[in-house]
């Protein structure tokens, strides 16, 4: 009897000592915090760097749709080996790093997860399609994974304080805004359930676009944009590209947009604003949000105002 009790005690002690990480594919149990982690999305990279346990490898290649580490994070990515692109990371490079855990995107890496699991246990979170809340929950789970749960909670508390401060700048009477990423050949609306849309809703700025067919992001053309006729338009572009909106701005329809007439078209770096999606990205975004006057619904000014094409 006593033996049995002892055994139970030992077992429960073991269970307590174990690390349990809840993720989209189930729960991962580890005997000790993971030290060697490979991540396949930028938000995981951002989070682990914020937690002070940078990954050994990350999908930070620049191929196809991938543009590498977002500028705000670049100086902090030191000693992280590239394992290629996010969509097709090099399995050899991952294996060579001997990771204890691989963090993948539930949706993007759906078909790749069996292969990854053969290399190391996989933790999957919805990063690309996740909302601000989803990504915050992932910060806690990742904190648990690397043995920095307290640090993760503190990151979120600090973030909450910053959000409160930022909220004070938000003009509650401001009309809903439209958020969109503009590349050279596409204009993708980010709805209220996307990362950036839900972050702005947290701050008291409503999004005009709602998900369609369960998609939190979708493409529209100039006509679709005119139909939405936002009072405030926020476009995310890259400085090294000529986004499609630069051409649209030459069209008379553009100047009839309410946002154009009110001078409320803002332009931000799309890598910094929509790709990082971690605690460090959020801090960066909040600073630019306040700075730009977007929260207060002030006219876009200086570096943050939409750059009209040169005639």
């Amino acid at each position: 009897m006593i033996n049995r009790l002892l055994a139970l005690l030992v077992l429960s002690g073991l269970a307590l000592a174990q690390i349990q990480v809840r993720h989209d594919l189930g729960t991962l149990s580890l005997g000790a915090p993971a030290k060697r982690v490979v991540v396949l999305e930028y938000s995981f990279l951002d989070t682990l760097i914020a937690l002070g346990v940078p990954p050994v490898g990350a999908a930070i290649g620049t191929q196809g749709g991938d543009r590498g580490v977002p500028p705000y994070l670049r100086s902090r990515v030191v000693g992280v080996t590239s394992v290629g692109s996010r969509a097709v990371p090099s399995l050899e490079a991952i294996l060579a790093l001997q990771p204890q855990v691989i963090i993948a995107d539930t949706f993007v890496h759906r078909d790749l997860i069996p292969q990854l699991q053969r290399i190391a246990p996989v933790v999957a979170f919805s990063s690309r399609r996740g909302s601000f809340d989803d990504l915050n929950k992932q910060v806690v789970e990742m904190g648990r994974l690397v043995g920095r749960e307290a640090q993760a909670q503190k990151l979120l508390q600090d973030q909450e304080r910053l959000l409160l401060k930022a909220r004070a700048f938000a003009n509650p009477k401001a009309p809903p805004l439209l958020l969109a990423v503009a590349t050279p050949d596409s204009f993708t609306v980010h709805t209220n359930e996307s990362f950036i849309g839900s972050l702005l809703e947290h701050l008291g700025r409503k999004s005009l676009a709602k998900p369609q067919n369960n998609q939190t992001q979708y493409q529209v053309g100039l006509e679709g944009l005119v139909a939405l006729n936002p009072a405030t338009l926020v476009v995310f572009t890259a400085p090294d590209e000529t986004p499609v909106v630069r051409g649209w701005a030459r069209n008379p329809l553009w100047s009839r947009l309410e946002a154009a007439q009110r001078g409320r078209i803002y332009e931000f770096d799309r890598d910094n604003w929509t790709r990082g999606r971690g605690p460090l990205a959020t801090r960066f975004i909040l600073a630019e949000l306040i700075d730009s006057g977007l929260l207060a619904d002030k006219p876009a000014s200086g570096a943050y105002s939409f750059k009209m094409p040169t005639p």
Partner: peptide
């Protein structure tokens, strides 16, 4: 047109690749 993030995956398949091939 209806696709979003899945496109990259579908496109790799269309081009043809031996990436990810395993014993299975």
């Amino acid at each position: 047109v209806r696709a979003d993030d899945g496109v990259a995956q579908a496109l790799t398949f269309l081009v043809g690749t031996v990436y990810g091939a395993d014993w299975e």
